[in-house]
Design a protein around this nucleic acid. Structure first.
Lengths: 241, 241, 241, 241
DNA sequence: GATGAATGAGCATTCATTCAT
DNA sequence: AATGAATGAATGCTCATTCAT
């Protein structure tokens, strides 16, 4: 869960700042600057100046600028995974847990819109090793959500003619892309937008009944849940998260 | 519609390549390199080397590296807008036009996945002027799609408790984000994924009947279409497209 | 022969320095600084300051600091190879050409002691590609000298119980290492030292007669010239020149 | 002779590794890393990681990174000097002791090729004080060898027209440079190469008889041994060893 | 004896852009 | 219409060494 944190031993030196405080200053400054100016537009110099530490200190804690970005994102992801796990493991009917999960994604996205935007824009700059590390964790999160969808399919509340993987990606993508169009000054609050997305998503999950929107002959027929997309993630060689 | 193209008329130089050919070489090389290595990782030097022209020539045709990126995207966008316009203006019931439009987006996204990925990743690097220019065109495209959704709402085939704007963004986002997770070696082809997304989307549009997924009390109630999000784009100061 | 030189078109601009002059300034400054302070202790900043050009100009002409070092050495090597080739191809008995060649190495070493010292100390820092390039040229030089030794062996003036390759390396090494011990303020001039080395070397080449220094039983016996060390150079993977 | 070693006496810590073991780990790790990657390419961090000690421990035992290098070399040199002294002081005719000494250098060079290569490449990076310290010891070694040559000259088995100093440097240089060209996969073993070098060297020492290689008029005439190069080392200001 | 976080000056290198020709 | 040498400010990063604990 923790991502290379350092425990500050409470006691501060005389002239020195307390132990581990440098790391926290760096993360705080970087988070703020990345969100405000973007990852590429923020130089390491900017970060250390804002954090009031030296470059050496930054490179003592982080191997590179991109590791810093990765570190911030992984902490976010760990938190979000934890929340989702609690919801998924909770009691109650699957449709309620599904709705709760969707609403939780909305809430988390709203809370950390800035950091998530930075990640979406700059994750492709990471080297293979870092990309792989986050991909694995992201995958775990995705699987958690997908399993909930599958549970819904198994209990008949979610249509089974669509891949649970595709459903999951679609919802998370729609949510994760709001930064490209949502604006706080618009007529809807983020919470409202989120609820609408949830409604749209849950509506799309209902097993198709007598359809108001005419079916298309080219529509691929039902697929048993077993034929689900197991490998719909990027290949290991890919840099996509 | 045309984006600063130069028509190479019959008149060719004697030993030189035909007029305007330099521009085309540059665009071709840049498109290929941006797609393969990313915008930031492609230097102007790389482009001119691949296009077999000099730096001077590139700066003769394009004011900057970013103008080149913008130029490529605008051409794509113009083509897609044209296609959507023809579908939207076509005959037939609205639900069929809506379906056709959705399928067309899938097809276009598949065809130009590389360029669209580059754009998604690097659009935020552009300066305000260029961002504004593409934003206007992108807005026009978005409105075209949204109007189709509204038409559906007006004729009763699309639920009216959701903002047409949100619906439109959700679908285009889900499609536009496939590059972050779709992999050709997976069990589904891109066309299949596209069809599933369309089905999910169209399913979500059906007016809510007796719901398999329980409604949530916090769900915002019906909103008349007239209260739609007019300013759901980013603020002018933002660099978001 | 030429190593990426640029022809200066004689004509100078008004405010600009003449074309290609930047490259020459850089080489001159680098040669001087490398010799005086060593390669590692000379920063690129030092070089451009001394050459009165910008860093950009340096990197326009040279891909890296090490390419600059390589470039200087290759020019030296090309010149020396040319001189040796003329001597080797000259008329006269082989023993005289051998002596002339040895003396020429002494002379060239004396002339370019500083540059050669820099090279000897820093060649191992080069990357594989550059090391390989110079190794090939160095090898050509070595072979030229060795062939002269072999010619001497064939005509009976040089002992054949020693590998021509080992003989060549031994002489060139003794010469090339003078920088570690020779000091101009010593009792011998460099020319005198050189002559003594030549005498020692040529003396060692005489076919062994009745020996003043007792032979050792472990001494490996005669080896036909044909068994000569064909692969006594470093492996391709090695960074040794 | 001893170079700041610490004897680990019986008294070991309870849970800790025995006293002084840190020092030995450091020397072992540094020797291995310097040989494999070179002195400059090995960071202090690399050394402490390999030795499984902390930076503080390293700086407790060694004043600096270069002191570590010096330390390794001095130990080598002390051992070699000791061996040479025993040979030189041994019984038997001078020509046999000379031959034995030469063979011993070959053997020692072969045994410690890696460390000697590191030293040859990086000695010039040391500061004056350290350079001076090793120079003095190296000088003692050199003098020991040279005195053997002089003894040979005095007893008539070594030619007297060459400086004993030059002779000594030439032989040690040829040997000490083998790392730049010898490759174990070549047709000769290192021992064979060494024997050939000894043969070449001893051959060159024979008083010139009727010469197969014609003498050159420019050859400097005989020099009495008394005029020998006393100050053939580099000047005090120089960083050369 | 040993720790390890912090230092800080210095490094080689990049690259979109300009402009005299 | 095109050249290409030159710009110059900025970039991410290194690393031997120190010192409060």
């Amino acid at each position: 869960m923790t991502v290379a944190t350092t425990e500050p031993p409470a006691a501060a030196g005389r002239r020195r700042a307390p132990r581990g405080s440098a790391r926290r200053s760096i993360v705080a400054a970087a988070t703020e600057l990345f969100a405000r100016r973007g990852y590429e537009a923020t130089s390491v110099q900017d970060i250390v100046a804002a954090a009031e530490v030296t470059k050496g200190a930054l490179y003592h804690w982080f191997g590179s600028k991109s590791e810093l970005l990765t570190s911030i994102y992984r902490e976010l992801l760990a938190e979000q995974t934890q929340r989702l796990r609690e919801i998924a493991d909770g009691a109650g009917p699957v449709e309620e847990r599904l709705r709760a999960a969707a609403l939780d994604v909305v809430e988390h996205t709203a809370e950390h819109a800035d950091e998530l935007t930075v990640w979406a824009r700059s994750a492709h700059l990471l080297d293979d090793e870092q990309a792989e590390a986050t991909r694995r964790e992201r995958r775990r999160y995705h699987d958690l959500f997908r399993d909930l969808v599958r549970e819904g399919q198994a209990s008949g509340v979610v249509r089974t003619d669509l891949s649970a993987t595709v459903i999951t990606h679609a919802f998370l993508s729609a949510l994760g892309n709001t930064h490209t169009w949502f604006h706080p000054d618009g007529p809807l609050t983020f919470a409202e937008v989120g609820h609408q997305l949830v409604a749209l998503f849950l509506g799309g999950l209902r097993p198709p009944g007598p359809e108001p929107v005419a079916p298309h002959p080219a529509e691929p027929g039902r697929r048993p849940a077993g034929s689900d997309a197991q490998r719909c993630g990027p290949s290991p060689a890919s840099k996509n998260p």
